[in-house]
Amino acid sequence: MDEGLQAFSENNHRNITIVSKVPDVCRKQPCALGIDEAGRGPVLGPMVYGITYCPESRAEELKAIGCADSKTLTEEQREKLFGKLDSLQDFVGWAVEVISPNSICNNMFKRLKHSLNEVSHDSAIGLIRKALSLEANITSVFVDTVGPPEKYQAKLSALFPGIKITVSKKADSLFPVVSAASICAKVARDKALSTWKFKESPFISLKAESQELKWGSGYPGDPTTKKFLAQNIDGVFGFPQLVRFSWSTSEQILKTKGVTVEWEDTEEQENQAVSVKKFFSNSGKYNSPRRHPYFIDRKLKQATKLI
């Protein structure tokens, strides 16, 4: 995982998927696959989706090594458990998708908004398909729900006929294979956040190289995170890409500390109903490219004619 996360830190504006080797036994025996996420709520850093899979007959062994809901474990415990999971390569496989803050914001700011729930569903579906493409014999899937469990389960069942889908609230505490997935996701998120490399150093107020730059857990209520947001905003360019611009927390700070930009409203003029016949008339209005109001207001004319 470390090598993959190093690649992410170098290009942290893009998503990355990191996969383990598929155990031979997982190609032959019916396998259970668990899905969970980490970092859905924070205003800082990526959201990470994780999967873990193993033969259905050995799923309880994950509970025996201590796999539990990652939120109930300390960071040290999670690190140790991930190390154990990664060492069980004879019967356990895993994968994580690290979804960059940049990707989350771009989806939520689209003209046709792609919600965080939809981003989550896309990631979960993509990871199941990834496991299947690697020829893991997935026969059952257990998912911690995003949105109404019944609708999510119906959606996944339609996409993956022949695989038994179970979508449940608190799945990370009910099914060991989901607990294991939650550990993979949380460890990946923590590492991605702690090793983040800033591309915007000219306007970051503290130097990351000196280890003085602190941003905390990334949750809006964290005092360290609040301080980071208050100190590291540029009036024109906003926050560094570590920050999710689409969160209300960052939007409010941008409103109070950012530079107000007023855009000239030409929408009304452009949206006026125009007969298609006018585009074929002899008048020059529609036969030549429309000039921007900037040039019209300043009475600027084209000095040379392009051929």
Rank of each mutant, 00 (worst) to 15 (best):
A124F: 11
I125M: 06
L127G: 00
L127S: 08
I128W: 01
I128D: 01
A131D: 05
L132Y: 04
S133G: 12
E135A: 14
N137K: 15
T139I: 05
S140Y: 06
V141H: 02
F142P: 07
V143I: 15
V143R: 05
V143G: 03
D144F: 05
K151W: 07
Y152M: 15
Y152N: 08
Y152Q: 15
Q153Y: 01
K155R: 12
A158Y: 05
F160I: 10
P161G: 06
G162W: 09
K164Q: 12
K164F: 07
T166K: 14
S168V: 01
K169T: 15
K169G: 15
K170L: 10
A171R: 04
D172K: 03
S173E: 10
L174F: 09
L174I: 08
V177R: 06
A181N: 06
S182T: 11
S182D: 09
I183K: 07
K186P: 07
V187A: 08
R189P: 09
R189M: 08
K191Y: 14
A192K: 04
W196C: 07
W196P: 06
F198N: 11
K199P: 00
E200H: 06
S201L: 11
S205E: 08
L206D: 09
K207W: 03
A208W: 09
E209G: 07
S210V: 10
S210K: 15
S210Q: 11
Q211N: 13
S217G: 06
Y219L: 13
P220M: 13
G221I: 02
D222M: 06
T224H: 01
T225D: 01
K226S: 02
K226G: 00
K226W: 00
K227N: 03
K227T: 05
F228M: 01
F228N: 03
L229Q: 02
L229S: 00
N232S: 05
I233T: 00
G235K: 12
G235R: 11
V236N: 05
P240W: 02
P240H: 02
Q241E: 15
L242N: 00
R244P: 13
R244D: 10
F245Y: 13
F245M: 12
S246C: 15
S246I: 10
S246H: 14
W247E: 11
S250E: 04
E251N: 04
E251P: 01
